[in-house]
Design a binder for these strands. Structure first.
Lengths: 163, 163
DNA sequence: ACTTGCGTTCAGTTTTTTCTGAATCAACCC
DNA sequence: GGGTTGATTCAGAAAAAACTGAACGCAAGT
């Protein structure tokens, strides 16, 4: 890790571990951390150099962050390099992540649950599932479905509060 | 995966993948899923058998879930086995997880950030950091700290809304 | 048309995480 | 005390994920 002060490097490491805790690769968190404390946009080579990463990792990591709306890429004229900078306001990043990854995931989960309800009905009819078991399962699945629905409607509100 | 109907097994798998997406081992999610759709508490052997896991995994997974307040363990008299059941009301599980894992993590992050602020001040004084850089970093770190604080105060409210 | 300098892709390696089997521990019964 | 049956621990295997170097593609400059 070159050309970066200890405090910034430590911040990057902290964000790396935090990202990891949420299932995001450490390198991705590190990149965001580096950019967040940078007073100017950085090129891929600078990122890779500062964080001791291969340029390949820097590239995919930065693109992932872009997909999460956590960073922006821009380019100077007369310089073919891409320059990356963090979008400030972390809350906004969170909000974007909620709507762009949590929400679709929720929708998907919802569909699968609905499918399961049907499947279970079929199992009941073919006798694989006793009436007793069937009612319990059905009940709990419906509860879960209701909750995901509810959560979906509250999501925008929560986003607003968190901001 | 024996002694479990397709729909229930699929549900367990779904929860396994979901857990994984949040950085929790799949087996842990699977166990919760199995218990959630069970009409009675299950023993470790039943869990391991149903999910094709070793008893060791079943044991540690169940204990992890217990730590997250997602399951309860009980024992019948005249039977030395432990019996596990999911705590229903998934929202409550979420809420407990927020207060018992998210909140401490937040507090910890907060402390580390404060430490970084000090470290940066030292770097400024020793000239490692230019005045320009220093102000930018300081500013952004403070913003972040403020936001984590804010988030901490809103957490209980969000919990209540989600419920 | 050739070279240079950039970002990206991808196959293979390294690292990390998860899972397992065997050993251990603990309660209970005889 | 010895045997049985359950849970837990732990070292190592297996699997998954992250990362890398080398090759590639592409645009701009010569």
């Amino acid at each position: 890790m070159k050309r970066v002060t200890p405090s910034r490097s430590e911040f990057a490491q902290l964000l790396g571990r935090t990202a990891q805790a949420f299932g995001v690769p450490p390198s991705v968190g590190q990149i965001y951390g580096l950019l967040y404390l940078s007073d100017r946009p950085l090129s891929l080579d600078e990122i890779a150099d500062a964080l001791d990463l291969s340029k390949a990792s820097a590239s995919v990591g930065a693109r992932q962050l872009e997909a999460l709306h956590a960073v922006r890429v821009s380019s100077k004229s007369d310089d073919r390099r891409d320059y990356w900078e963090a979008s400030l306001e972390p809350q906004e990043v969170l909000q974007k992540m909620m709507s762009s990854v949590l929400a679709p995931r929720l929708a998907n989960a919802h569909n699968r649950l609905e499918g399961l309800v049907d499947l279970m009905r079929a199992e009941r009819e073919s006798g694989v599932l006793s009436g007793e078991e069937f009612t319990v399962c059905q009940q709990r699945l419906q509860l879960l479905i209701a909750k995901t629905q509810q959560f979906k409607t509250w999501l925008p509100v929560v986003e607003r509060f968190v901001r």
